[in-house]
């Protein structure tokens, strides 16, 4: 299956090797195989694969991974822009729709 890539060099993902203990949780959490463990430390294989879901940083106990998380959804960004809030879709919560 062909891997789909989104825009180049935009993801806000950062990894601080000094804080990394090489536990490997990021490789288990990431849905796009952005990380690999090399010589006892995590390494970002391809930044452009990152969708900023935050699964890695959320599960990194040493805080070695930082990423500005959010859902890459144009509708949510438009809603946020119109209401002057952060990106927000009308799903979940009160309206209970199944989308992001």
């Amino acid at each position: 299956m062909k891997t789909m890539h989104y825009l180049k060099q935009v993801a806000t993902l950062k990894l601080d090797p000094d804080l990394c203990t090489g536990c490997g949780m990021c490789t288990k959490a990431c849905p796009h195989a952005v990380f690999e463990i090399k010589q006892g430390k995590a390494r970002i294989t391809d930044l452009d694969d990152c969708m900023e879901c935050g699964a890695c940083s959320n599960n990194c106990r040493t805080g070695a991974i930082t990423v500005k998380t959010g859902t890459g959804c144009a509708v949510a960004i438009i809603n946020g822009f119109l209401r002057g809030t952060e990106p927000s879709c009308d799903c979940g919560g009160e309206s209970q729709k199944n989308c992001c």
């Binding site: 989104y6 993801a11 959804c73 144009a74 960004i77």
Partner: peptide
């Protein structure tokens, strides 16, 4: 983009 499984917020912006 919202339905896709690989777009980032930074990218969509």
């Amino acid at each position: 983009t919202g339905s896709s499984t690989y777009t980032s917020l930074s990218g969509v912006r």
